[in-house]
């Protein structure tokens, strides 16, 4: 390395070629005396080091980068302060157990009316698209899950942070609106720090659903707000709901027992996980999603309306109820 005179710190570029030639000549003269390359000894220690070891000196910035990376890993493994930072939910932390701040906000105007006014023509045109999974039928002799009023019960268990739940809620709202009316639905989003972050969706927390055919029982277990590394609790399943989960949120209906979203349609059909990939909703506002539900050629409508068709068919098969020609108007 030291055989290369120009390997040391670069001199300023000469103003013209003659000056450069002159400088080169001077440099060679000064540094190559008696056939031996010499290294200038003036300057600070670092400058002298760079002159003596130009390659090693040049790699100092790389060393600093590697040092920074090692420092990050060390801080991470030793539990640095940044670990306490939640994964950026945009909603302010609320209290557990369904406190005042549950990570929801009012629905944007026009969303519910758009979701509940999809025409039968659109549903029929979309039909049963590929890439959308249908609920799984339980054994035929399974007793019907009935609510306290004697109507068949549809049990949903999910959480606001969960992106798959976010996707499934759209299909559920569309499908259930064909058998009854929602009120009190609010807007929320999946967790920013999870897969398919910030997926816009409804929250069933605090909503009511009325239907002459069936009861809908939603359980939103957790918010989308991280506190001390865990999402705060919103609702807890009852003992009977836990029994349903223990029975159906397991094999053969899922390879990962305890997964959400969990949907039980009167114990006759079970759906675990999202019916379609939440990817199709990425980056879309609730208004944009709702508007596209009417476009049978859109990926959003194919996914959501297609999944709603599957749920609708399962509800009809399980309860005998017939869907309205279009989704009912919510209030």
């Amino acid at each position: 390395m030291s055989k290369n005179p120009s390997g040391s710190a670069r001199p300023a570029r000469p103003a013209n070629q003659n000056a450069r030639n002159k400088r080169n000549a001077t440099s060679r003269s000064a540094q190559n005396q008696g056939g031996r390359t010499t290294v200038p000894t003036s300057g600070s220690g670092f400058v002298r080091f760079r002159r003596a070891h130009p390659v090693l000196g040049a790699l100092v910035p790389v060393g600093l980068v590697l040092l920074a990376l090692v420092a990050l890993v060390v801080v991470k493994t030793t539990g640095g302060p940044a670990n306490a930072q939640p994964a950026a939910s945009k909603v302010a932390p609320g209290s557990a157990g369904g406190g005042a701040d549950n990570g929801t906000s009012p629905l944007p105007s026009g969303v519910l009316s758009a979701v509940t006014s999809i025409s039968a023509t659109t549903f029929a045109a979309i039909g049963d698209p590929s890439g959308v999974s249908a609920p799984t039928a339980t054994p035929k002799k399974t007793s019907t899950l009935d609510a306290s009023d004697g109507k068949p019960e549809i049990l949903y268990v999910g959480a606001e942070f969960c992106p798959y739940c976010a996707a499934e809620r759209w299909a559920l709202v569309v499908a259930l609106s064909r058998f009854g009316t929602f009120s009190g639905l609010r807007a929320t989003h999946s967790a920013d720090g999870d897969i398919y972050p910030d997926t816009k969706t409804f929250s069933f927390y605090g909503s009511t659903y009325t239907s002459p055919y069936l009861d809908f029982v939603p359980v939103e277990e957790q918010t989308n707000q991280l506190v001390d590394g865990a999402y705060t609790t919103l609702q807890t399943p009852t003992a009977s709901e836990e029994a349903v989960l223990a029975k159906y949120d397991t094999a053969p209906y899922t390879s990962e027992p305890g997964s959400i979203p969990f949907l039980d349609i009167a114990n006759k059909f079970v759906s675990i996980g999202a019916s379609y990939t939440p990817q199709v909703l990425q980056g879309l506002s609730m208004q944009a999603i709702a508007e596209q539900l009417h476009d049978k050629n859109s990926a959003v409508a194919t996914a959501i309306d297609g999944a709603a068709n599957q749920i609708t068919a399962a509800i009809t098969a399980a309860t005998g109820a017939q869907p309205s020609t279009s989704a009912a108007t919510g209030s």
């Binding site: 390395m1 290369n4 005179p5 120009s6 390997g7 670069r10 450069r20 030639n21 080169n24 130009p54 390659v55 000196g57 040049a58 790699l59 910035p61 790389v62 980068v65 590697l66 990376l69």
Partner: peptide, 19 residues
């Protein structure tokens, strides 16, 4: 990217002007 950074830095160090 870090390896490239190193290679580029070394390249600047060893490059020489020749007439």
């Amino acid at each position: 990217a870090v390896a490239l950074f190193g290679v580029i830095l070394v390249a600047r160090a060893v490059s020489r002007s020749s007439t």
